[in-house]
């Protein structure tokens, strides 16, 4: 039997929505038994959600080496041992900031093949697709050894419900932390903010936003949409937004269902970070802006006029 394992990323609100796309990707094998690995000790609370997407076994992972929460290397060691113990062939997870870090640690420990940020996966043939050259090309990569590790770009594989009954397993890995790396603290700068890389809708402000406080205008629209707010490199360089909000070549790569770019010119570097969005909308005063040549919908107008009207219309239609 082909066994797929999935590292489940959890947060304050439980299982992150984007995990369900990863589970769906693993089910694509047809004959795979799906294991979900949970590190936060709350596996029983996630049972309903995980089994509705076809997870057959939930493994609640603990270690002899104590609390996992602030030790990335201990988490990786526990996962690597569990992958071996449960005879997992394909080990998958989200290509979020945490996922890329953790899965790379696991692959390095196991000396296993790793492809990060996959946008397509065929487990039967062990081939995956991923962006190369900042989204200008897509590479098909053949994986030549087992077990292998892949991280999947959030939102690129649509989640599909497939209810089943799942079993809860406790597993205690006999690993210790190497003691060379520890998380000291986590600083929340924007509490409650929707995570950019996992957001279904993103509204981004470019250089014409003109001041940090003007992002409030986009935030109001984002609040109605349940969206996250992003920034262009030019806006970040001008000090209008922190680097953590930057989308593009040297910022974050996102793949939402809807991307609304306000005051963006449409540079190659920006598109590198958002090209795989499903629908791209541009709002720009310049009818000649390159972005209008390569997006789905456009409104020629000033973001300071258009965005408040958009917020208003969305509010009206919601109520």
């Amino acid at each position: 039997m082909f066994k797929a394992g999935i590292w489940i990323e959890t947060g304050e609100n439980g299982v992150k929505e984007a995990n369900f796309g990863v589970i769906t990707a693993a089910r694509g094998h047809g004959d795979a038994e799906i294991h979900a690995f949970v590190l936060d000790g709350n596996a029983d609370a996630y049972q309903d959600a995980l089994q509705s997407y076809g997870v057959q076994k939930i493994v609640s992972l603990g270690t002899d080496g104590g609390d996992l929460s602030s030790k990335p290397d201990l988490q990786a060691a526990a996962l690597a041992e569990a992958v071996n113990h449960f005879e997992i062939t394909a080990f998958l997870g989200l290509s979020s900031a945490r996922g890329r870090d953790l899965l790379a640690r696991v692959a390095a420990l196991m000396d296993a093949p790793l492809v990060q940020d996959c946008i397509g996966i065929d487990l039967s043939s062990q081939t995956v697709s991923k962006s190369h050259f900042s989204g200008k090309t897509v590479a098909t990569v053949k994986i030549n050894a087992n077990p292998f590790v892949c991280s999947v770009r959030p939102n690129t594989i649509e989640a599909q419900i497939a209810p089943c009954q799942c079993e809860l397993i406790e597993y205690r890995a006999s690993v210790q932390d190497p003691g060379k790396l520890a998380v000291k603290e986590i600083e929340k700068s924007r509490t409650g903010a929707v995570d950019l890389t996992e957001a279904n809708i993103i509204i981004t402000g470019g250089y014409p936003i003109g001041a940090a406080e003007n992002y409030n205008l986009l935030q109001q629209c984002a609040d109605v949409l349940g969206a996250a707010v992003g920034a262009s490199r030019a806006a970040v360089d001008a000090g209008y937004a922190p680097h953590s909000m930057q989308i593009g070549q040297t910022g974050k790569t996102v793949s939402p269902k809807l991307y609304i770019g306000c005051g963006l010119s449409g540079s190659v570097q920006h598109f590198a970070g958002m090209k795989t969005s499903k629908v791209i909308v541009a709002i720009n005063t310049d009818a000649e802006a390159p972005i209008f040549e390569k997006c789905d919908y456009g409104i020629i107008g000033d973001l300071f006029e258009v965005v408040p009207v958009l917020t208003q219309v969305l509010r009206e239609q919601k109520s």
Binding site: A112, P113, L114, V115, T127, H132, G135, K136, T137, V138, A139, T140, V141, K142, I143, N144, A145, F148, K275, I280, A282, A287, I291, F292, E293, K294, C295, D296, Y297, G298, I299, I300, G301, E305, V306, V309, V313
Partner: peptide, 26 residues
């Protein structure tokens, strides 16, 4: 451990559909 077996250019999206009229209408 891995090898690239195919590289394909990603086509750009075409021109945007532009909505016209007043701000409210568009």
């Amino acid at each position: 451990l891995t090898e690239i077996i195919k590289l394909e250019a990603v086509p750009e999206r075409g021109k945007a559909k532009i909505f016209e009229g007043s701000t409210r209408e568009s």
